[in-house]
C-alpha cells in the first residue's frame, strides 16, 4: 500500500489542474498496476505459484497415508487419473460422494478414500497464514488448475444438484451477515467501484466474472503465497466479520459453483498473480 501511495504521490505532481485530481491519480495507479500485470504475462515463469504447482504434481504422484498409495487414481470428474481439463469442468456433482464438489473438496475426498487419510486434523487449519507457503492440498489444487490453463470454464452445472448448488450460492452471495451487515454483494455487485484503491469485480456480471474467477488459485503478492479459491472465500468472510468457513463446506462450494457458473466461457488462467 505504501508503494502504491508513493506512485500516487509521484504521479500527482505531474497531473494538470484541469483533471479531476483523484480520478487522475487513480488512473495513474491503474496504469502502473497494468504495466506490472503485463510484465508478468510476458514472462509467465515469473509467477512463484509455479513452484507450488510443481510440488503439487510431485505430491499427487507420491504414495502417502495409511494406505501408502498416490492420488493418481483419483477421479476428478473425467475418470480416474485424468487431470488435463478437469479443473475447467469443476465444480460438479459426484455420485460417489452424493454432493457437488470443487477441486479442493475432491482432493480431500480422494485423500480420505484412496489414501485413508483422516482430514479432520488438517481441516482445523487448512490455509497458510500470511507469508507461509500454501499447504499440500492447495499445492495439488494449484497443479490441477494449471493443467486447465488456456481452456474455457465449461462446468456443465446442469445436474439437479448442481443447479441447486448454483441457486444456493446466489442466495448466499446476497445474504447480509455479521455485525457489519456485509454480503458478497456489498463489494461485488456493481461495476467500477473500489475499496480504498483496490478495484472490485462485479461478480454477478458474466463479463467481469469471466475475467477474474479463472485466475484462482493465484499467487497473492500482498500475502506472498498462493491462495486457493476456498481460501479466497474464507478471506472474504474474514472481512465480513464471519468466522473461518469450513474448507469444502456446502456453503463455500455453493459460492464457488455460483461464481464459476457466472464465469462460464471465461478463460482459465490459473495460477494467476494478484495484488
Amino acid at each position: 500500500m505504501k508503494s502504491l501511495r508513493t506512485i500516487v504521490a509521484a504521479i500527482a505532481l505531474l497531473g494538470t489542474a484541469t483533471f479531476d485530481r483523484a480520478a487522475a491519480q487513480q488512473d495513474a495507479v491503474e496504469r502502473e498496476l497494468e504495466k506490472y500485470r503485463q510484465m508478468m504475462k510476458a514472462d509467465p515463469w515469473s509467477n512463484p505459484a509455479l513452484l507450488d504447482a510443481d510440488d503439487g504434481e510431485a505430491l499427487w504422484k507420491k504414495p502417502a497415508g495409511p494406505n501408502n498409495v498416490s492420488l493418481e487414481k483419483c477421479d476428478l470428474g473425467k475418470g480416474p487419473g485424468v487431470v488435463d481439463g478437469a479443473f475447467a469442468a469443476l465444480p460438479k456433482y459426484f455420485a460417489d460422494a452424493d454432493r457437488v464438489m470443487d477441486t479442493e473438496t475432491r482432493i480431500l475426498w480422494c485423500r480420505e478414500k484412496l489414501q485413508g487419510i483422516d482430514n479432520s486434523e488438517f481441516l482445523k487449519n487448512p490455509h497458510p497464514g500470511g507469508g507461509a507457503r500454501v499447504k499440500e492440498v492447495g499445492r495439488i489444487a494449484t497443479w490441477i488448475a494449471s493443467k486447465s490453463a488456456g481452456m474455457k470454464f465449461a462446468a456443465k452445472l446442469d445436474h439437479p444438484k448442481e443447479v441447486d448448488a448454483v441457486e444456493v450460492g446466489k442466495v448466499l452471495f446476497n445474504r447480509r451477515m455479521g455485525p457489519f451487515d456485509f454480503a458478497c454483494t456489498t463489494c461485488h455487485a456493481d461495476s467500477g467501484k473500489r475499496i480504498r484503491l483496490q478495484p472490485l469485480p462485479f461478480l454477478s456480471k458474466p463479463e467481469e466474472a469471466k475475467k477474474v474467477v479463472g485466475e484462482w488459485p493465484a499467487y497473492r503478492v500482498s500475502s506472498t503465497h498462493v491462495m486457493t479459491m476456498q481460501h479466497r472465500v474464507l478471506d472474504c468472510f474474514w472481512q465480513m466479520r464471519m468466522h473461518r468457513v469450513q474448507m469444502g463446506s456446502e456453503v463455500s462450494n455453493a459460492l464457488i459453483a455460483y461464481m464459476v457458473k457466472t464465469a462460464e466461457g471465461g478463460d482459465v488462467a490459473a495460477p494467476g498473480m494478484k495484488r
Binding site: 445474504r175 455479521g178 456446502e250 456453503v251 455453493a254
Partner: peptide, 30 residues
C-alpha cells in the same frame, strides 16, 4: 440456508451465532 451456514461456521465461538442469523431488517434486505 441457516442450517448450512451453522455447519460451515461450526468453528465459530457460541456467542457468534447471532452473526449468522441476522435481524428482521437484514432478512428483508437480503
Amino acid at each position: 440456508i441457516d442450517a448450512m451456514l451453522k455447519t460451515a461456521f461450526k468453528a465459530a465461538p457460541a456467542d457468534w451465532a447471532g452473526r449468522i442469523e441476522g435481524d428482521e431488517t437484514m432478512k428483508i434486505c437480503s
